[in-house]
Amino acid sequence: MPLHKVININSSTTIFLWKITESFEDLFDEVQLKDINLIRLNTMKSELHQRGFLSVRKLLSHCGYTDFDLIYDQSGKPYLEDGKHISISHSHEFSTIVLSDQNIGIDLELVKEKVLRIAPRFMDISHLDNLSEQDQMKKATIIWGIKEAVFKLKNEVGISFTDHIFEDPFLLSDKKGTAKLRFNEGVEQFTIVFEEIENYMLVCALKDE
């Protein structure tokens, strides 16, 4: 399937979303991989993960890049050779990348019942008060995504979802919010943008200047 959706966050930040309907073989035939990433692909045990990995390369191609333009630092954070910032996520049927002139983080999560069981481990569960069970699942998934996106943006050892990343109150209808990182005796502020895509939550974090 071609590109599923494009979301413009601001003048220099765009999200690209791919719905993965192709077979592994079709995706593999349509992309070129660096040797190191071909090895990485072949070590993946799940075909679902392999298809997500390859569909990200399809998104890169749509944006005028190839696998050869994508590099990773020692901690696994992706960069593009031309200096453009990129963040990557994939989950089950979807993959996504965001390109920006500023450092950015993105996360994509399938909404599942399990998130409510683990919610007390990573969030203030009072943020789920007065919501239906379905909306609690959606909001908890967004909050997990906020923490993932901020963590990806910062990419620093020692950051804890529970102890260091805090979402400010928001409504599901807002489609945006704010969050703080309290780490190493400093406080950083982030703008959060989120959107429901079928039964998935897409969350993007940008650092406030």
Rank of each mutant, 00 (worst) to 15 (best):
I192F: 12
D35S: 14
S132M: 04
L41H: 14
F122R: 07
S55C: 03
K207M: 03
Q50F: 02
L59Y: 08
F166G: 07
G76Q: 13
E188V: 08
I7V: 13
I142H: 00
E188M: 13
K138W: 07
L202C: 02
V187W: 11
K138Q: 00
S46G: 10
D208M: 10
L60E: 07
L80T: 05
K207D: 00
G186W: 11
S132A: 08
K112T: 05
N103V: 00
V115T: 03
K5Q: 15
H127V: 04
R182F: 14
G186R: 11
L181M: 04
K114V: 10
M1N: 15
H92G: 08
K175N: 14
A179F: 07
I142N: 04
H85C: 08
V6Q: 14
N199R: 10
Q136M: 07
L60K: 06
G64E: 01
H62M: 06
L3Y: 06
F190N: 09
A205M: 07
F28V: 06
A179W: 04
Q74T: 04
S100E: 08
I159M: 11
T13D: 13
G158S: 13
F183V: 07
K77P: 10
D129Y: 15
A119N: 01
L41E: 08
F53T: 12
D129Q: 13
V157T: 15
G76K: 05
I146S: 08
D29S: 15
Y72A: 08
F151V: 06
E109R: 01
I142D: 03
D124K: 09
F194M: 01
D208K: 13
I15S: 00
M1T: 12
I20K: 00
Y72K: 07
N103T: 04
H164E: 02
K34I: 01
D35N: 09
I86V: 11
L33D: 09
R40I: 00
S95V: 05
R117C: 06
S12A: 11
T14H: 12
E47M: 11
F161W: 14
F94R: 02
H85D: 07
F166K: 14
S12G: 12
F183M: 09
A179I: 00
L202N: 01
E25L: 09
